[in-house]
Write a protein that binds this DNA or RNA. Structure first.
Length: 364
DNA sequence: GTAATTTGACCCTG
DNA sequence: CAGGGTCAAATTAC
């Protein structure tokens, strides 16, 4: 991928990245100064813009495999949050699980669908539910319909399967799985797969077929409750795990989209190909195979394509604060979002270890 | 009556 | 063959 960059691309990327770096530096300074959420938001937006532009400059590259995992840790605002993103991540070998069962058939064309299913991006969001969260709370912007529940081997709690309500009408292939954590009953692992191609889903006022019904339903369903609530109570930070870009891994594994405000941890797992997903996207601009399952309108995140610790440090700082939550909440409002579809794929972007991205100097 | 959920059966993958 | 994911008929909720 990086090999395909021409001079202009590199220059543009550099400019954007430098700009992003500057914003990040300012943000860091502001964090230390305990600045207002507004200021922070501006800075973060700047960072995001820079990334978006940078990534947009990159040509879409061929599908590549997802090898390492990205761990996106999102902090719950006022609620508790896992002490360490990485620590929480330890517990699962979900990749294996999912890979094994990934392939179920599709209605239309079993074999084709099976392949497609395999290529759908997926990521796990760990959500911690808190009593104070309450039941009110916005929907994640998408309408889900439960289509199955299974008892999982060695798991205390069953896993619920949801798919987009508009699966049939709009052929939206997004699905999610919700399972209560064995270790911490207040913790839910929500695995999203596929991108929303439905129109209703991403809107600020999702055309939920029956909002009331859903709310009531989900109120009785801790899984959902955690899911929805979490979405609006978070700050996002990204950490990488198992990234060994110095090794022979030649591509950036996961395309990411950051479900704008997922709480807890989010793992980008096992993303394999973007080809299919692109097919389903309209326009093709910044739509990626990784449409957010929640609110794609905006996401605040930090991105580390290398195993650096800088973000981790920032994470720690932020975790104890609530500003970012406000910040995210604010920008979560679709009306505030300058980025219509905050979805992009590093994969597609062709990000790779050779990408001229000096993360070490990102946060001096 | 319509839409969502439940749940047992079936299919696919490893 | 076991386990996970999905289907679809039956049931429930609105």
């Amino acid at each position: 991928m990086e090999g395909g960059l021409n001079y202009e691309q590199k220059v543009l990327i550099s400019e954007q990245l430098i700009q992003g770096t500057n914003f990040a530096k300012q943000l860091r300074a502001q964090l230390n100064l305990d600045s207002s959420a507004e200021t922070l938001e501006t800075l973060i937006q700047g960072i995001l813009d820079s990334y978006v532009k940078s990534l947009g400059i990159l040509k879409w590259s061929e599908p590549i495999k997802c090898q390492p995992q990205y761990v996106v840790a999102a902090t719950l605002g006022a609620t508790s949050v896992p002490a360490s993103p990485l620590s929480v991540n330890n517990g699962s070998s979900r990749d294996d699980e999912f890979d094994r069962g990934l392939a179920a058939k599709e209605q239309f064309d079993s074999r084709e669908a099976s392949k497609k299913r395999k290529m759908l991006p997926k990521w796990t969001d760990q959500v911690k539910i808190s009593p104070e969260a309450g039941l009110e709370g916005p929907q994640d912007g998408y309408s889900w319909r439960k289509y199955g529940q299974k008892d999982i081997l060695l798991a205390k709690y069953p896993r619920s399967y949801y798919r987009c309500t508009y699966r049939n009408t709009q052929n939206c292939q997004a699905t999610k799985q919700v399972q209560k954590s064995d270790h911490d009953p207040t913790m839910f692992e929500i695995t999203y797969r596929g991108n929303h191609t439905c129109i209703h889903g991403g809107s600020s006022t999702p055309a939920l077929t029956s909002p009331k019904k859903q709310e009531l339903k989900q109120a009785n369903d801790g899984n959902h409750q955690a899911d929805e609530l979490a979405r609006f109570r978070t700050g996002l930070m990204v950490e990488t795990e198992n990234l060994d870009l110095g090794s022979d891994v030649t591509e950036m594994p996961c395309p990411f989209t950051f479900p704008s405000s997922s709480a807890g941890l989010l793992y980008c797992e096992n993303y394999s190909s973007s080809g299919v997903a692109h097919k389903g996207n309209r326009g093709g601009n910044f739509s990626s195979p990784f449409l957010s399952p929640s609110t794609p309108e905006s996401s605040h995140f930090s991105l580390t394509p290398s195993p650096m610790t800088e973000f981790g440090q920032i994470s720690s700082q932020r975790r104890s604060e609530s500003d970012l939550t406000e910040l995210v909440s604010a920008t979560n409002s679709p009306t505030n979002s300058p980025i219509p579809d905050w979805d992009f794929s590093l994969d597609d972007m062709g990000f790779g270890p050779d990408f001229p991205f000096d993360m070490a100097g990102f946060f001096p």
